[in-house]
Structures are given as structure tokens and as C-alpha cells.
Design a protein around this nucleic acid. Structure first.
Lengths: 247, 247
DNA sequence: CGTAATATTGACTCACTTCAATCAACGTGG
DNA sequence: CCACGTTGATTGAAGTGAGTCAATATTACG
């Protein structure tokens, strides 16, 4: 366990986008005991049924996703996470994991001691509200996913996921150009939107054929942002990207 | 604005199931400024796009639900809430509502001043963790709904919703006998599980015909709990019903 | 370079939707 | 107390979006 700055800097940045932090708040975060860790793609970070781990992970590099399994073996990916996301806030105050978290790509995380994070969340109001907001935004995203899967057809569903990922990546400052790498295989994409891989393939193709999506390997770009937004029925409100002014 | 005990008593009880509260915590809750309010069925409590309201509602009687609308008019019900649930915790720290909340039946709520609730959530660790847990359980339920809609067929989906509602009602001590009233019309049920009303009707009928569900008007009972649990693939873990021991 | 994982495509099937009636329940006014 | 209107439940027939099965191409990678 070390205590050097740079890795926690990013957490400070992230939380600053959620609530106004003063110098003491920043210091408190930078003083958190932490470990750095890496996971290879497909490695489990959390397993459903687990008791809480000692550390609460924050992604510093790479992608991860949450998943749940149906009684008869079906898999549902319930969220995708990128650099700057807390993986484990969902379990910060719960005593058993109700879902699994897996590395999607090579993944680097900063593991903060859970007890210390709990303490800081409860003792420092500004940090507390930043963490609250972060968790509530996650909730909001789940709600959008419920609607996405429950009430949109395949085309809109896939388009919506593409919109969400691109907007979140841009907001997290992970995209420089217009294109971005979608780190999901078509099978994973299918499990995220509640379709089969075959149908995802065809639907994706139709988006490409219609010229609204350009695809090169896993790299995606949009020829016309207004067009996919229209197809997806995408409204970024639910991402609550401008919460800085607080509540 | 009054300050009599009985209505907030229930909130104390609810939060006590989430974390251990001491006498001061209880007093702090009972001292919260609040108003009592009623809504007729179908009335909006919160509208998507709204700024936060002054009061944060806690259901003392009746049912409510959250919903979102697709760009082309589709409706998705994303959760159902019963007596003892906070309606608005989801917006406690966010500055715009990303979904609507509507009364499902005649509804009585206790509206607690939002600022006061924020303060108590951030200042009193025990209450803070109780509220955290409550919000995190909501998240967990959303995740289960994503899976329910994304990866289960109509029969299992509907069975799962029935299981969830009955278990939650029992946990909230709202059921005395074996039967319970499902406050949803078939159309609402359809919007909750991502199906059409027609198909819900047929599927429900098949469950009745198979003898696993008994139905009289809106009253539902199960002839064999093990059987619907099997059909639904229902595992109550995600409801985190025994969080009392804290984290 | 070989081999496994992923992507693609075709042909066929089916769970769920759509459209369209009909029926039942319930509150309301005369 | 009953006709009537409105909302919710039920049923049938036909259509379709997405699933299934299965083969082949492509890519990633040790």
C-alpha cells in the first residue's frame, strides 16, 4: 500500500464533476489508503454472492462490465464501465454482491479501502454528496436500460447503446477523434441489449448499410450524429452530465 | 407543517431495517419537518424534467410507480413502490428528474423537507448508511429488471414480477393472508415487463390454467410457491432483505 | 502459420405483436 | 334501480421481428 498522488488525482477529478470539493476534501481523498491492481480481460473483479471485499475499485484504465445470470444460464450485461467509474460503489454499503463484475479489457484499478471510503462518504458532506450523485447516476442509467430493452426495437436498442458509450467516453475525455473503440464483442453487445449475437450482427450491418454508422473492426464512428440520435431516441438527460452546480 | 410522531415512526422503522439507529438518530428523524399529502390514482408526483421539489416523499399508504417514455411514445414502467418506500431518494442529490413518478392507487405520503433530509443523510452516519442502503437496493432491483426483461421469456418475466411484489409486500408487512392484491392493470403490467397487454393476458391465463397462480380480480395467490419460483427463476438475494447487520 | 475466437450469412421457426372484436365490471345520472 | 359509457379483460386470426440452427469467413494471436 503506497500513498502517491497521481492515481488518486483522477478520483478527485471525477468527484469534482459531481460536487464542489474544497481543499480539505481533496486532501482527504488523496490521503485514502489504496492499492493499484490490474486485471486481464474476462477476469472477475466481483462475483455474485461474494461478501464485500476489502477494497473498493475505481477504474483508472480500461473497461469493465456488470453481469447477472438467469437461472437457466442466460447472461445479461447490466452496465458497462470506463476509466473514471467506480466499480464497487454499488456494494459499498451492502453485505453481499448481487451481481458480478468482470474486466472487459485489460483493466487497471485503484482499490480504495472500503472502510475508509465509507467513513469519508459519511463524514465529509461534499464527498458524501459527490458519491451519492455518482451512485444515483448509475441508477438512472439502469432505468434507461430497462426502457431500452423493454420498449425499443433492435435497431434503436443498439443505436442507443452506441450513443451512450460514445457520450460517456467523450465526457470522460477518453476520445480525441470522432471515432471510438467499442470494446464489446457482438456477443457481449447482444447480452447488453437483450438480443442474440446473430441478430446484433444483422442489425449492426443494417445501420452500416444505411450509412449512419461507420465501422472498422471494433472502431465505430457516426457519419451523422443527429441521425443515430434519432434512430436511438437518445436523450442524454439521464446521464446527468452537468451536476457540478450540486443540489 | 406539523410535527407529530406517528407518520414518521414508519420511516424510523424502515430505516432501522437498513442500519442500526441509536436514540439520537431516531430523534433526528422524528424531528424532521414534514407535510402529509395525498394523491389520487394516476396523479403525477414527479415529472421527468422537473427541478427537485421541496419535499422528498415517503409512502405511508398505497402504491406508486416510476415510468419513462420512449421518443415515439412507448411507456416503460421501471419500478413499483409500496408503503414504506422512499419515492424520491433517487432525486435527493440530482438537480433534474430523469423520469416520472405516478400514483398507482390512492396514495398517502409523508413529504420530508429535501434539504433537511440531505443534511441528515450527510451528517448522521447511521442514517446516512441506512439511506445509502435503501438507494443501493433500488439499484439492485433495477439491475434485476434489466435481466428480467432482457433475458427471460414472457412467462418467467411475469412470474418474476409477481414473486417480487409478493415478497416485498410481505417484507413490508402489508400482507396478512396468502393472497395479495396486485395493484397493476394488465396494461401497466405489460409496460412493466416489456410486453403487450394482449400477451400479458394470455400468459397470465396460462399460469392460471397450469394451476400455479390463482386469480380473483386483482387478487393473486400462489398455489405452490416453489412452482412459480421455479418458473420465474426467482432468487430474492437481490432484494437484500437482511441488511440489518450493516456493512 | 495454425488454431481458437469472433463475425457473417442463409434458411427456417416461433414467441410475441398487431388488429379487431367481444365481454365484463363499475360508476354515474336520471 | 337500471340504461349507458368508459375502462379493463379476454379471445381469435394473421403478421413479423427476432431467435435458432448451421455453415463459412475472418480475425486475433501464441
Amino acid at each position: 500500500m503506497s500513498n502517491s498522488y497521481p492515481v488518486l488525482e483522477r478520483m478527485v477529478q471525477k468527484l469534482s464533476t459531481r460536487a464542489r470539493l474544497d481543499t480539505d476534501d481533496r486532501q482527504a481523498i488523496l490521503a485514502l489508503p489504496f492499492v493499484e491492481r490490474s486485471y486481464h480481460a474476462t477476469t472477475y473483479v466481483v462475483r455474485e454472492g461474494d461478501a464485500p471485499r476489502r477494497y473498493c475499485d475505481f477504474i483508472s484504465e480500461g473497461f469493465a462490465f456488470r453481469q447477472k445470470l438467469t437461472a437457466n444460464g442466460g447472461r445479461q450485461i447490466v452496465s458497462v464501465h470506463l476509466a473514471g467509474d467506480f466499480i464497487d460503489l454499488q456494494h459499498l454499503f451492502l453485505n453481499i454482491a448481487d451481481h458480478s463484475v468482470q474486466a472487459l479489457t485489460e483493466l487497471k484499478v485503484v482499490g480504495v479501502e472500503r472502510k475508509a471510503l465509507q467513513r469519508i462518504a459519511l463524514d465529509r458532506p461534499a464527498i458524501g454528496s459527490a458519491l451519492w450523485i455518482d451512485a444515483l447516476v448509475d441508477s438512472s442509467i439502469y432505468r434507461e436500460w430497462v426502457m431500452n430493452i423493454g420498449r425499443r426495437d433492435a435497431r434503436a436498442r443498439i443505436a442507443h447503446l452506441l450513443c451512450e458509450v460514445s457520450v460517456r467516453m467523450r465526457a470522460a475525455d477518453l476520445i480525441s477523434e470522432e471515432k471510438f473503440e467499442l470494446p464489446l464483442t457482438q456477443e457481449q453487445l447482444a447480452d447488453a441489449v437483450g438480443l442474440t449475437p446473430v441478430h446484433v450482427n444483422r442489425t449492426l450491418k443494417s445501420l452500416v448499410d444505411d450509412g449512419v454508422v461507420y465501422r472498422d473492426k471494433r472502431y465505430i464512428s457516426f457519419t451523422d450524429w443527429g441521425a443515430i440520435v434519432g434512430i436511438a431516441g437518445f436523450n442524454p438527460l439521464y446521464l446527468h452530465l452537468d451536476q457540478t452546480r450540486g443540489a
